[in-house]
């Protein structure tokens, strides 16, 4: 969870900012936990105790937790999560396989950027919901359309970030490499690739989030299995607590994948770690 608390330009200026920036990891986790507990308590009071909001629209935290217990014990999660996970992993994997070479090409070659770029941006700009009916026509009713939407959602942010990373490589670093004898061919592995790594990971984090949205869009519109199907079924039968519990699981999964991406980045590219200045 640490990246949520990373120091940024706006932190550390005020007294509260300075206090926040100086907290140890343990204290920061404690602070966030306290924040969550207070929020949940307020929520429980507003919905569960005072009933200011109809719990059919927004269930109280306790009924979400009991809903979570229900879907876990009834085997609903066990029946639906694997299908979603499989579609997500396959779709995201395909996105990587397509986005990385294409992104590199787009960044390296101006003609490719001019020819493929506008088409790619047009597909990217199309709301993923619009692909849903077509995806069904193309891939049937199984895992196919879900994989497709995950792929379409994740591929572009990864690709465009990678291309931008290559195109914005610091020109004086390139000059330095040339001065110290790097051939044009060696500039790619020695300079362009490493300097694009932070951009690649920025794209991957966006890709992770958008992949889940793509997955949900596909599953919510009539998939037989998957977390989206579970959410729809629970909502339709007024098991709103269960629906929210399923949403919560999806959110936890997505945040975990973002965190995994950040951990991989720190391992692959330790120089990007926000140390010192």
């Amino acid at each position: 969870m640490t990246s949520f608390l990373a120091t940024g330009p706006s932190l550390g200026g005020s007294r509260v900012g300075a206090w926040l920036a100086g907290l140890s990891l343990r204290s920061r986790i404690l602070l966030i936990s306290a924040e969550v507990v207070v929020m949940l308590a307020l929520w429980q009071l507003v919905v569960g105790v005072f009933r200011w909001i109809n719990p059919v629209f927004v269930p109280a935290p306790l009924s979400i937790f009991s809903g979570l217990g229900d879907i876990l014990s009834s085997g609903a999660v066990a029946a639906n999560a694997p299908a979603s996970l499989q579609a997500w992993v396959v779709g995201f994997g395909l996105a990587l396989v397509i986005a990385i070479p294409l992104g590199l090409l787009l960044g390296v070659s101006l003609p490719v950027d001019r020819i493929v770029g506008p088409i790619a941006w047009a597909i990217y700009a199309t709301p993923s919901v619009a692909y849903q009916p077509l995806a069904k026509a193309w891939f049937g009713f199984g895992i196919g359309p879900v994989v497709f939407l995950v792929l379409v959602s994740a591929v572009f942010p990864i690709m465009f970030n990678l291309a931008a990373g290559i195109r914005t490589t610091n020109t004086s670093i390139i000059s330095a490499a040339k001065v110290y004898g790097a051939s044009k061919f060696r500039l790619y592995p020695a300079i362009y690739l490493p300097s694009t790594v932070p951009f690649l990971f920025a794209g991957l984090r966006q890709g992770v989030v958008l992949a889940t949205i793509g997955m949900m869009v596909a599953e919510l519109s009539g998939a037989a299995v998957g977390m989206g199907a579970l959410i729809i079924r629970s909502t339709n039968t007024y098991q709103v607590g269960q629906a929210f519990a399923a949403i919560m699981l999806v959110v936890i999964f997505t945040i975990s994948m973002v965190q995994v991406t950040t951990l991989v980045e720190r391992w692959v590219a330790p120089w990007t770690r926000g140390a010192g200045k």
Binding site: N170, S172, I173, S175, A176, A177, V179, Y180, G181, A182, R186, A190, I191, P194, S195, V197, A269, W271
Partner: peptide, 26 residues
């Protein structure tokens, strides 16, 4: 050899690996 105004170091390399860069390329 050139010394640049904006240093032009490779941010992904340590001091040692930056200094050896020229030897490596040559």
């Amino acid at each position: 050899a050139v010394v640049f105004q904006d240093y032009a170091l490779l941010p992904w390399r340590t001091v040692f690996d930056n200094v050896r860069f020229g030897l490596e390329m040559q």
